[in-house]
Amino acid sequence: MAAAAAAGAGPEMVRGQVFDVGPRYTNLSYIGEGAYGMVCSAYDNVNKVRVAIKKISPFEHQTYCQRTLREIKILLRFRHENIIGINDIIRAPTIEQMKDVYIVQDLMETDLYKLLKTQHLSNDHICYFLYQILRGLKYIHSANVLHRDLKPSNLLLNTTCDLKICDFGLARVADPDHDHTGFLTEYVATRWYRAPEIMLNSKGYTKSIDIWSVGCILAEMLSNRPIFPGKHYLDQLNHILGILGSPSQEDLNCIINLKARNYLLSLPHKNKVPWNRLFPNADSKALDLLDKMLTFNPHKRIEVEQALAHPYLEQYYDPSDEPIAEAPFKFDMELDDLPKEKLKELIFEETARFQPGYRS
C-alpha cells in the first residue's frame, strides 16, 4: 500500500510507478496490472468513496492506442447498470505532455475469474450472474457493438453480487458484411471463450460470437473449470467437437473457408456428449439454455433477447427493466489503419471533457 500523499506533496508512487492523480484522489492501494497499465484503488475526496484507477501508458504502440481509444469512446457513450462506466479521466493539459491516461471507475471487490478459483456457486448465484451478463449484453448488442472478449476476468463483482462487464478494448461495431482481413492475426481474445466460426472463417462476425462466450462462462460457473481449455488453435476446435459432436452437413455448409471445411470433413465422426453427463448436478433449465448458447452453427445460436426470456431466468426476466441503447454506435473511421500519432490526438480530444474549465 502506498503511503497517503500529504496535501501538495506531488504524485504518489505505487510499486515504483508514478500515479499522478492528486489532489482529488489519494490513499492509493495496488490492485493489479494488465498488459499496459496498473490498477489501484484510491480515495475520492470529492465523492467520499474509494474508486478504481487504471493507469494506461499506450502511446508507444499502435495496438494499445487503438484499444484505449475504443474503450474510452464506447464506455463514455454507454450507460447501463451492468456495464462499468467511466467516472473521470485524468491526463496532462497538453498533448505533448500526455504520456499516461488515468481512467477512474467504480471500485468492484472482485471478478468472476477470482471468485470461481475459490468458491463453488449455488444455482441461485449462477442464475443471477447469468441474468446480469445477458442484461448488459442486450444493451451492448442493441448499440450494434460486439464485445468480443467476454470471459470471467472481464466480469466485475461486488459483495452485493452486482455484476458489471468491463474491458471493451477489443470491441467492434457489428459488421457481418465487412471482410476484416487479418482478423485472426489481430484477434487476441482469450482462445477458450472463442466461437468456432472465428477459427473457421475470417469473413465478418456477428453478435452470436458473444453468446458463445457467455455459454462458455455459464459452463464454467457450473463446474469451476473452463469447458474448452484448448492449448492452441486446432486443439481448441477438437475440444469443442469432442463435446458438441461432429457438425451436420448443414452446419458445414455455413463454413465459407474450404480449407477449414475440408479439415472438419477429414475428422472421424464424434457423438455429442449429453450435458447432464458433463454437469450431473446442474439445473435442467440451465443445461437447456447452455445447449442453445453453445450451438456450433452461429445462425442457430440463441440471441440475447431470447436467452433473457428463457425459463431458467424467469424469476428475473423483465423486458421493461432491460434497457437498450438510445442509438446504434458508430465509429467515424476504422481505427485499425491509423498511425499511433493520430490515435493519440483522438484520445486527447475524447478525454477533453474531463479537463478543468472544459467548454463543449
Rank of each mutant, 00 (worst) to 15 (best):
V49P: 13
L258W: 11
L290V: 05
S213I: 08
Y358G: 09
S223C: 12
Q17W: 01
L170Q: 13
I90R: 03
P268G: 03
H147F: 01
S57N: 10
A143M: 03
Y102H: 05
H120Q: 14
E60I: 02
E334D: 15
N262P: 03
A4P: 02
L265K: 03
E250M: 08
G10M: 09
D336W: 12
L338D: 05
L146T: 06
Y36K: 12
A307W: 00
K151S: 05
A352P: 00
A307D: 11
F129P: 02
K99I: 05
N262Y: 14
F228L: 14
D167L: 01
D179R: 11
I198L: 12
P319C: 02
I256H: 09
I140Q: 09
L150N: 04
E60R: 14
P274F: 00
I256E: 09
L290A: 05
L265V: 04
Y193E: 07
F348R: 10
P319E: 10
R50V: 12
Y317P: 00
K300R: 12
Y64D: 15
F168Q: 09
I103Y: 06
M333E: 04
A309R: 03
N82D: 11
A352S: 14
Y312R: 08
K151N: 08
S266R: 15
L200G: 02
C216P: 09
I126K: 08
E197C: 05
Q315W: 01
A143E: 11
L338F: 00
W212M: 05
G16L: 06
N271Y: 13
G34W: 13
L200A: 08
Y64S: 15
N123I: 14
I255Q: 10
I217K: 04
P58W: 15
L156I: 03
P196S: 09
V49G: 12
T181C: 07
F354R: 03
E345Q: 07
T159M: 08
I140F: 14
Y102D: 12
R172F: 01
N47I: 14
K138W: 05
D179Q: 05
P311I: 09
L69E: 03
I256F: 14
K54S: 05
N158S: 14
Q355K: 15
E303N: 04
L75R: 15
L134M: 15
T181V: 10
G215Y: 07
L264T: 11
L244N: 01
I243N: 12
G182R: 14
R261Q: 13
P226V: 05
Y312T: 09
A352N: 10
E314W: 00
H178N: 14
V145Q: 01
Y128N: 14
I240M: 07
K342E: 00
L265A: 04
Q306S: 06
L137H: 07
D88G: 01
S284F: 08
I255F: 14
D20H: 13
P11A: 13
K164T: 07
K48W: 02
L237H: 06
C216R: 04
L218K: 06
E197M: 01
K259Q: 12
M98H: 11
G169D: 15
Q249W: 07
R148F: 10
P280W: 11
R50K: 13
V18L: 13
S266L: 01
Y36T: 15
N262T: 01
D179N: 13
N82P: 02
L28A: 02
Y36H: 15
Y205G: 06
I217F: 14
Q62F: 09
N262S: 00
H141P: 12
Y316C: 04
K285H: 12
D149H: 03
V145N: 02
D177L: 07
L112I: 07
L290N: 00
H147Y: 11
H269G: 06
E33C: 02
R70P: 00
F329H: 12
K292V: 05
G245I: 00
R353G: 09
Q132P: 06
A260H: 01
H310N: 13
A352F: 00
K330W: 00
D235P: 04
R70Y: 00
T351K: 07
Y316P: 01
H120E: 05
E345N: 08
S41V: 08
G32H: 05
F19G: 04
T63P: 15
Y316S: 00
I74W: 03
T185A: 12
L237W: 01
L278N: 06
G8D: 03
A325S: 13
R50G: 00
N238F: 12
Y25W: 00
I31A: 05
H180K: 06
N82Q: 06
W212L: 14
N271I: 15
I211D: 02
N47H: 11
I256Q: 12
M221W: 03
A307L: 00
A143N: 10
L218V: 04
P311F: 01
L258Y: 09
F279H: 03
D235E: 14
G32D: 11
I347E: 12
L184A: 08
T63H: 14
G245M: 04
G10I: 11
A307Y: 00
L116T: 01
I84C: 03
Y139A: 09
K340A: 06
S208W: 05
I84R: 14
N154R: 08
G22K: 08
A219Q: 08
A7E: 09
K99P: 10
W275A: 03
L155M: 13
S208Y: 15
Y43A: 10
T94L: 03
I347Y: 15
S57Q: 02
E220Y: 05
I256P: 06
K270V: 04
I126N: 11
Q119M: 07
L163A: 04
V273W: 02
I198T: 00
N27L: 06
K272W: 02
V304R: 08
L267A: 03
N45H: 12
W192C: 14
I89Y: 07
L313G: 03
N154M: 08
I198R: 11
L258C: 10
K55L: 13
A189M: 02
L156C: 05
I72G: 01
I211S: 13
K203E: 07
S248A: 09
I324Y: 07
T26Y: 13
L134R: 04
M98K: 15
A307K: 00
A352E: 13
E326H: 01
F279C: 06
L170Y: 01
M199L: 15
L75T: 02
H269K: 07
P93N: 02
K54Q: 06
Y36A: 15
E60P: 09
I324A: 03
A3N: 11
D251P: 03
D106Y: 14
L335N: 13
I84A: 01
E220L: 06
Q355E: 12
Y36C: 15
I90D: 00
N82F: 04
L278R: 04
K207E: 00
P323Y: 10
P152A: 06
M38V: 13
E305V: 14
L157K: 04
V214W: 04
W212A: 10
C161N: 01
A52Q: 01
Q66C: 12
I83H: 01
I243H: 05
P280F: 11
H125M: 01
L112V: 11
T206S: 15
Q17A: 11
S246T: 06
K73L: 12
R191K: 05
H178M: 09
M293K: 14
Y30K: 08
I347R: 10
L112F: 06
L343C: 05
Y113K: 10
T68N: 15
H141F: 04
E305D: 15
D124I: 04
H147C: 04
Y263M: 04
Q97K: 14
Q132W: 02
D337E: 15
A195N: 01
L244E: 03
K73Y: 10
L137V: 01
K73Q: 07
N224P: 02
L115R: 00
T190Y: 11
I90C: 12
L112P: 05
L241D: 09
R67E: 11
Y102C: 07
L69Q: 14
S122K: 05
V49Y: 13
R301P: 04
G169W: 01
D124F: 04
A307T: 11
C216H: 06
L112A: 08
I86T: 00
S153L: 08
L258E: 01
A5V: 13
E341M: 05
S284V: 06
L264V: 06
L338H: 03
S246V: 07
H147L: 14
N281W: 04
P356F: 03
Q132T: 04
G357T: 01
L76C: 07
A260E: 07
K117N: 15
N253L: 10
E322P: 00
C127Y: 09
T94Q: 08
P356L: 12
P339G: 11
I217S: 12
E197H: 01
V104Y: 04
A286P: 03
D283Y: 15
P280K: 07
L116P: 07
I140R: 09
M98Y: 06
L130E: 01
